[in-house]
């Protein structure tokens, strides 16, 4: 008995060592690349940076305690306000994108003519919304980043403008003007949704394809309707990927470089060189994001189904 228990334990230990081997690259990354930078950022938020007097020398830090955090809560009403409104907006975007991308992924997973083309077209936002292309698209914005007030919504700018439809609805007294404004708001957000959910669609698609057709076959033999299959098979099997996408979308909505708070922070760093203020604000804002992500994980713990 004891020998057997020992054997099992040694296998467990062997497996745990193997686990360390698998994650070793990331441990090295965390210890030697990630943590030094994060610690530097946090240190910066608690101190004042003294710029080098001699060229080529690195900066030195003077401990300032909670000064920059106090500034955030007491003096800068605008930043607090900005954080709050941005967070609310991001939350709406988050919910829209999550549902929308799941719906589109289910559609793109079905068999129909022109599916490959549709998939390629839905892939366009993945490459267009980041990197150099986003930069060129907002080229004229690059100069106006200086002031927060002049930030134009990039999503609305690249959207297909539909003045004719809106005018038509407004002009004819068929619909209530409030309803019209709701419709136009939906259309405007639609472009944010379409352009913001490329990655999510791709991830959902990969997840959907990982579900074995055998399971669906079994369900249809048992007499499950499409609706039941969706709720009893697709949704639980997809729940790990849904959690992934929920977390990723939340993070993306809150921290992409078009986000007003992030822009204000980058502006403080790159143009105004207020490193410590920016660091303190970044720490506070990212803590808020971390709380949101934490809530999603807590919900996920109850709802996500893992087959292990």
């Amino acid at each position: 008995m004891a020998a057997r228990a020992k054997k099992i334990r040694s296998l467990e230990r062997k497996k745990s060592y193997a686990g360390y081997f698998f994650v070793l690259p990331f441990i090295i990354g965390v210890c030697f690349v990630f943590l030094p930078m994060i610690i530097e950022m946090i240190r910066l938020s608690f101190s004042t940076m003294i710029k080098p007097t001699v060229a080529g020398q690195s900066y030195t830090l003077d401990f300032a305690g909670l000064t920059y955090y106090k500034v955030f809560f007491t003096k800068d009403a605008w930043f607090l306000q900005l954080t709050w409104t941005t967070a609310l907006n991001s939350l709406i975007d988050f919910i829209c994108i999550l549902f929308f991308s799941f719906f589109i992924a289910v559609l793109l997973n079905q068999e129909f003519r022109g599916r490959s083309l549709a998939r390629v077209l839905f892939f366009i936002p993945v490459v267009v919304m980041t990197g150099v292309i986003a930069q060129v698209d907002s080229g004229s914005l690059a100069n106006s980043i200086g002031s927060v007030d002049s930030i134009v919504d990039v999503g609305a700018q690249t959207a297909v403008s539909l003045p004719t439809v809106a005018d038509l609805l407004q002009g004819s007294n068929v619909l209530d003007s409030r309803l019209v404004s709701v419709i136009t708001a939906v259309i405007t957000r639609m472009s944010v949704m379409v352009n913001g959910s490329g990655v999510q669609i791709l991830l959902f698609l990969a997840g959907l394809q990982a579900i074995s057709p055998a399971v669906y076959e079994a369900a249809s033999i048992e007499g499950c309707s499409g609706w039941e299959t969706f709720w009893k098979i697709t949704l639980p099997m997809m729940s790990p990927i849904i959690l992934l996408n929920a977390v990723y979308t939340a993070i993306e909505c809150f921290t992409n470089t078009n986000n007003t708070v992030i822009r204000a922070l980058l502006n403080m760093v790159n143009n105004q060189h207020k490193y410590s203020e920016a660091a303190a604000r970044a720490v506070i804002y990212l803590l808020i994001v971390a709380v949101v992500v934490g809530i999603i994980f807590l919900l996920g713990k109850k709802l996500v189904f893992y087959r292990e």
């Binding site: 497996k15 686990g19 994650v23 930078m37 994060i38 970044a282 990212l286 994001v289 971390a290």
Partner: peptide
């Protein structure tokens, strides 16, 4: 995903943290 070892949750937390903190900030 598959191995139990000490510090696994902490490490996963780090994975999420690398996502949360935009590299532009540092």
């Amino acid at each position: 995903a598959r191995f139990k070892f000490r510090g696994r949750n902490l490490l996963f937390f780090m994975v999420i943290l690398t996502l949360i903190i935009p590299p532009q900030l540092y």
